[in-house]
């Protein structure tokens, strides 16, 4: 039973207010959003911050829903929300095919290299030229997360031993 205490301690140490692990669907997305909204309402969070957190959460959760392989039970993902005095942290982790790693990191590096105006330009270029993919995405999720948070996206790939990589992403929203 030790792991229960360890998990609890990790959540306390990392200031995590919500952790969800498992399958991701639109229904789960709505439930997680509702829980996080209630939490922010009960702590009297400012509406501008609440909106940004909501926004980043939606993109993050829907990214996982769209890219998860629902046939594969080993494909479960994790979603976390952290909050300390200065920031909200929206964090996700999901398995990806190792060959997707390069494309993902190139896209994230490009986003992280841009300033506010650069991101606006990139957003406009993509929205003008994109088609909705068969997975339902517009290819704008990461750009939007970077714009709404005003921060760089922090990411890491953890190689697993079954030929996949675990993609960890953190987007922070300042509370000030």
């Amino acid at each position: 039973m030790r792991y229960i205490f360890d998990l609890h301690q990790t959540m306390v140490d990392e200031h995590l207010i919500l952790v969800y692990e498992g399958e991701f669907t639109q229904e789960i997305t709505k439930s997680v959003l509702a829980m996080a909204e209630r939490n922010m309402d009960s702590t009297g969070e400012e509406s501008t911050i609440k909106r940004k957190v909501f926004n980043v959460m939606v993109e993050c959760l829907q990214n996982i829903v769209k890219h998860a392989d629902h046939e594969d039970r080993d494909n479960a993902a994790i979603f976390l929300i952290g909050r300390n005095d200065d920031n909200y942290h929206i964090i996700s982790g999901n398995p990806i095919k190792t060959d997707e790693k390069e494309k993902l990191s190139a896209s994230l590096e490009q986003i992280n290299s841009l300033d506010k105006d650069g991101l606006k330009q990139l957003y406009k270029n993509i929205i003008k030229n994109t088609e909705i993919s068969d997975k339902g995405g517009a290819g704008l999720g990461f750009v939007d997360m970077a714009r709404k948070s005003g921060r760089k996206l922090v990411y890491e790939f953890v190689d697993t031993n079954n030929g996949t990589s675990f993609f960890c992403l953190k987007c922070s929203i300042p509370r000030a």
């Binding site: 939606v58 993109e59 829907q62 003008k128 995405g137 517009a138 999720g141």
Partner: peptide, 12 residues
């Protein structure tokens, strides 16, 4: 009040 990025493409 809010729209996601996939909706933004459709709003356009």
């Amino acid at each position: 009040e809010y729209f996601n990025t996939a909706s933004s493409k459709l709003i356009l």
